[in-house]
Simulated scan of single mutants.
Amino acid sequence: AGRSTFTDVYILLAVLWGASVGYGTFISILSGDWVAATMSCLSAAAMVGGICFRNFGAPRLVAIMILLSLGPCCIAAVLSGEAVMRLTLVQIPFYLVAMSIAAFHLNKLLVTTMKAERENDHRARHDALTGLPNRAGLVHASAHLYKADQIGEGKTAVLYMDLDGFKPVNDQHGHEAGDQLLVTIGKRLDALKGPDDMVFRIGGDEFVVIVRAGDQAEIASFADRLVSEVPVPFTLEPDVSVEIGASVGVALIPEHGADVMAALTAADKALTLAKLGGKAQWTLAT
């Protein structure tokens, strides 16, 4: 939400909480009231389990809180003069080590799970070949990055690009060459776009670029660059060079659609008109 938090205060309170538990156990043991001492030791031990599992995202904090909660028991055991209490000198260090190790293992499990979820989410929204966001990434961007009520000033355009003559490259040079060409196209589009723009590969030889600009003239200029610069000859191998074209359909938000997905439909229709009109050109949606 972008709001500041009181993390440092929370950590300090957690440490003081552990220390207060340790202090309560310490004075209970030294009081000579063994019923109170037993209850306080059991309470401290039980709470340490909660500390471990509640705060496993911060295993070093767990170790400190356990040490402050149970450490005073060892000191009080020596000062109490009761020989049986000295068993805590063996038991508590073992407990401290075991619970700290458990916290570190839980933390590792948490981090591993979070990384796996992040990677799966990335794979689901990105094209494996080019690394660009895919159709699912476009839908996500439409819902989160380009909300209709957040478009703001200026113009936002959806440019739907289809490559002209891509199939013959696959047929003549093989799919590996075609894949190499698509990767190069993706890099070329990424280099052409502005810092606030996004490029997507939504399938086959179809790409979508979402552009933010000050006015419609800037968008027209960008569309001209796509048509002229994307088809520059590609060198697939030292002795193999291919040249393809690019047809582009352009739709504006909100003129041709209230959001990205609606504008994409209009851009798709404009792309069809560009193809029918002779290819290697761009057409604005009507």
Rank of each mutant, 00 (worst) to 15 (best):
N107C: 10
L109Y: 10
L70W: 03
L79S: 09
T130G: 04
E82M: 12
G154R: 01
C52M: 12
C74Q: 11
R123D: 11
H105I: 10
I151P: 00
V139E: 08
A102P: 06
L110I: 11
M114V: 14
A136S: 10
T112L: 14
A45N: 04
A44I: 03
E119K: 15
A98W: 05
A44K: 00
D164K: 12
M39N: 15
S142L: 06
L145Y: 01
E82W: 14
K155I: 01
R86G: 03
I51Y: 03
E153A: 04
A157T: 04
Y160K: 05
A98S: 11
S69E: 03
L106E: 07
G49M: 09
A136W: 09
N55Y: 10
T113S: 09
N120M: 08
I64G: 13
T156N: 00
V48Y: 08
G81Y: 09
L96R: 06
M65A: 05
N120E: 08
A157F: 00
A136G: 08
G131A: 13
M99G: 06
L163S: 02
V158N: 02
A102R: 01
H105S: 13
N134C: 04
P72K: 02
R135S: 03
G154H: 01
A103G: 00
I51T: 06
A148Q: 05
A63E: 04
E82A: 14
K155W: 02
K155M: 04
L129N: 05
P93S: 13
L163Q: 02
S43Y: 12
S69M: 08
A77K: 03
A98F: 07
R135Y: 04
Y95R: 09
M99P: 01
L96K: 08
V84W: 09
A116F: 14
T156W: 00
D121M: 15
E119H: 11
V139T: 03
S100D: 04
V62T: 00
V84H: 07
R86W: 11
L110A: 06
R54A: 11
A63I: 05
L109G: 14
M114C: 14
A148M: 12
G81V: 03
I101L: 08
I92M: 14
A136E: 10
R60S: 05
